[in-house]
Design a protein around this nucleic acid. Structure first.
Lengths: 205, 205
DNA sequence: GTCTATACAAAGATAGAC
DNA sequence: GTCTATCTTTGTATAGAC
């Protein structure tokens, strides 16, 4: 019955992963000490390396889980031929904003690990290629043949996630406090699809 | 003549700064060891702390120089009441793209160091507030009172720099190689101002 | 004021006992 | 599987030569 016990208390491995998630999201990768994770989990320091080989590996594991969950929530809509371009944009912008409002550290997290220095996510299951060759891509090609679908995808993603990446910049700015920021983000949820439509339709003559 | 020697060989302090710039840009803040910098400069390790107090301080110094130079090239146009909104957008998108094509590591760099973990740039002279309260901001408020200027600024900057941040993602993608990426970026240099105009004008009825 | 050599502390990783 | 003790790397500080 070793593999089948139920009502079992949380495993050591799992408790470390949960603790790591909390600490990583609060302090970032560089700001997190493995000793913090061990303390938060109430486990011995050496067990982190025993179960996860390295701090970086543990970090990558957690990030991939978050991203995979997110992508799985996006892709079905993205590949559904029966939803319009506008609805797809609404879905992706809305889901990104929801995720980042709830977990403000994730965007920087992603960016952090794309650099060559850490490079954890570079070859991971980001599934971006699935986004690029999705039904969304095909729909744009068909309905707006004059514009490169890559540009539109870059615009949607850039307009959506940049403010969160740049939040640290903006917080220092006179005139944009947290309350205003979240109000702006809520506006963007509705406006980004409209803006994308304006871009697709082109300039007014 | 102590302050006025010319033809002088590069100073120790300067050689460390140059070496640090090279290594930081290549490996990022976390990936750079102070011993790497010392070796690259051909100087003793302790001199880094002697001249710059700490690794973080040295990093901040270098980043501020890069950003300041960039901002100084942007701000005059940004605050000139005699250039149109479109021309300002052209200027900022063009300058960003030029900078990032020449120094592909800078954008990720900036983002990397905005996180709370390292936080080197958080309270630095980013001059973003000057961008936000520039003539550009005022022009949008006046000519397009129905739209929040912050949204437009976020859109310009997001559309411009996101592709560089996401380049690592896209490089892994089937169908976008380096040549195509730079072709797309060159297109964006001209198209972003047009797209912004479409957004400002709103959807076609 | 500059520089070399060295010491020290924090933090990730590992070996080996149990 | 778990824990203690230890090793290694790395940023920083200091002592002392010139």
């Amino acid at each position: 019955m070793d593999e089948l016990k139920e009502n079992q208390t949380i495993s050591t491995e799992e408790s470390i992963k949960e603790a790591a998630k909390v600490v990583f999201l609060k302090k970032g990768f560089a700001g997190t000490k493995t000793r913090d994770i061990a303390e938060q989990a109430g486990e011995n320091l050496a067990l982190i390396n025993y179960y996860f080989r390295s701090k970086k590996n543990l970090f990558r594991l957690i990030m991939n889980e978050i991203l995979e969950e997110f992508m799985d929530s996006i892709l079905p809509v993205f590949n559904d031929p029966n939803t319009s371009i506008q609805m797809k944009v609404e879905k992706i912008a809305g889901n990104y904003i929801d995720l980042f409002v709830r977990q403000p550290d994730v965007p920087l997290f992603i960016m952090n690990e794309l650099g060559e220095g850490s490079g954890c996510l570079a070859q991971s299951e980001l599934k971006i290629e699935k986004m690029m060759h999705s039904e969304f891509h095909a729909q744009i090609s068909k309905e707006y043949p004059h514009i490169d679908p890559e540009h539109i995808i870059m615009n949607v993603v850039g307009m959506t996630i940049f403010p969160f990446i740049g939040k640290a910049m903006m917080n220092g700015m006179q005139g944009i406090d947290d309350e205003m920021f979240y109000r702006l983000m809520d506006e963007r949820r509705k406006k980004i699809p409209i803006w994308i439509q304006s871009i697709l339709d082109g300039p007014q003559e």
